[in-house]
Measured scan of single mutants.
Amino acid sequence: MGFKLLSKLLVYLTASIMAIASPLAFSVDSSGEYPTVSEIPVGEVRLYQIADGVWSHIATQSFDGAVYPSNGLIVRDGDELLLIDTAWGAKNTAALLAEIEKQIGLPVTRAVSTHFHDDRVGGVDVLRAAGVATYASPSTRRLAEVEGNEIPTHSLEGLSSSGDAVRFGPVELFYPGAAHSTDNLIVYVPSASVLYGGCAIYELSRTSAGNVADADLAEWPTSIERIQQHYPEAQFVIPGHGLPGGLDLLKHTTNVVKAHTNRSVVE
């Protein structure tokens, strides 16, 4: 069995187990497998329904001669939608809004960016022009300005110390501490036991640490421990890039980060 097929099978099995364990909360999309990078042309966006009122959005972007996937989250909030992270750029984010209108038909009224990198804030200006209120932590807003990236308009308070959590509509926002970046936030959907790890969490097929220019490698494993301790009931975990899975993604990420750190020390 090929690795790609095995990865998709694991996603399907995880979703099936969740649907059985929580039949009222989960209505997993039966329309197909989780979209992969090879299936999404740059400039297009796919939506994948995880649970009743919960979707991931998947886009792709060219970077350094390669094409990478990027995940975000959409959560229903009454007759409105909360968006977590842009679709990595203005063109993708405009396509995301169009796809949401086509498939869901509810307005996106608020959006949260989970850290300051372009795959999370690139497209904020498109959201703002569409009347979406954009939010991020003060740290993310400051770092985005320093980096020359787009800056969300509103500040999220109460997320300055490791372990801080605040309720934001249908989700809980959690600051686990520094990891992929010093400002990275985690998003949890309690009604569906869905954990969105953003770039602080890796997919299972990833074996290298990737972009760690703004990471705190020493603190990252401790931050992941905080996530595990705060959300032990999480059933569906979405990484910032690639295929979702279960809580095993947290341990896998820790292993990859520690291996990278150990290699760096040896070198």
Rank of each mutant, 00 (worst) to 15 (best):
M1A: 03
M1S: 03
F3L: 06
F3M: 06
K4H: 06
L6G: 07
S7Y: 15
K8P: 03
K8D: 12
L9I: 06
L9C: 10
L10M: 09
L10F: 05
T14A: 11
A15Y: 12
I17Y: 06
M18I: 05
A21Y: 13
S22Q: 06
P23M: 13
A25E: 07
F26K: 15
D29R: 08
S31T: 12
E33D: 11
E33G: 09
P35A: 09
T36C: 07
T36E: 12
I40V: 11
P41S: 08
V42M: 09
Y48L: 09
A51I: 14
D52S: 09
S56A: 10
H57N: 03
H57R: 02
I58E: 10
I58C: 09
A59S: 08
Q61A: 12
S62R: 10
S62E: 13
F63C: 05
D64R: 10
D64S: 09
G65E: 10
G65A: 11
V67F: 11
V67D: 08
Y68N: 14
S70A: 06
N71R: 01
N71K: 02
N71V: 04
L73W: 01
V75K: 01
V75S: 03
G78F: 06
G78D: 11
D79V: 13
D79Q: 12
E80Q: 11
L83P: 00
I84P: 02
A87V: 01
A87G: 10
G89R: 04
A90I: 13
A95G: 11
A98Y: 15
Q103G: 13
I104F: 04
G105C: 12
G105A: 15
P107Q: 09
T109L: 14
T109S: 14
V112H: 04
H115A: 00
F116C: 03
H117L: 00
D118T: 11
D118H: 10
D119W: 01
R120T: 04
V121Y: 03
G123E: 03
V124N: 11
D125Q: 13
D125A: 09
V126F: 12
V126I: 11
L127T: 01
A129L: 14
A129T: 06
T134N: 03
Y135R: 00
A136I: 03
S137C: 05
S137R: 12
S137H: 08
R142N: 13
A144I: 14
A144G: 11
E145F: 07
E145A: 14
V146F: 15
E147K: 12
G148M: 10
E150D: 13
T153C: 09
H154W: 14
S155H: 15
S155G: 13
L156I: 06
G158R: 12
S162F: 15
G163V: 08
R167W: 05
F168N: 00
V171W: 02
E172H: 06
L173T: 02
G177L: 02
H180W: 00
D183W: 01
D183A: 00
N184K: 02
N184S: 03
Y188K: 01
S191W: 08
A192D: 07
S193M: 09
L195K: 00
G197R: 01
G198S: 05
A200P: 03
Y202D: 04
R206C: 13
T207V: 09
T207R: 09
A209D: 07
A213S: 13
A213W: 08
D214S: 14
D214A: 11
D216F: 05
L217N: 14
A218V: 10
E219N: 05
P221F: 10
T222C: 05
S223D: 02
I224D: 01
I224K: 01
E225G: 12
E225Y: 04
I227V: 11
Q229F: 11
H230G: 11
H230R: 10
P232L: 07
Q235G: 06
Q235P: 05
I238T: 03
P239S: 03
P239A: 05
H241D: 01
H241A: 01
G242V: 03
G242S: 03
D248V: 08
H252F: 04
T254A: 11
N255H: 06
K258G: 09
H260T: 06
T261D: 12
N262P: 09
V265F: 13
V265Y: 15
V265H: 13
V265P: 13
E267H: 15
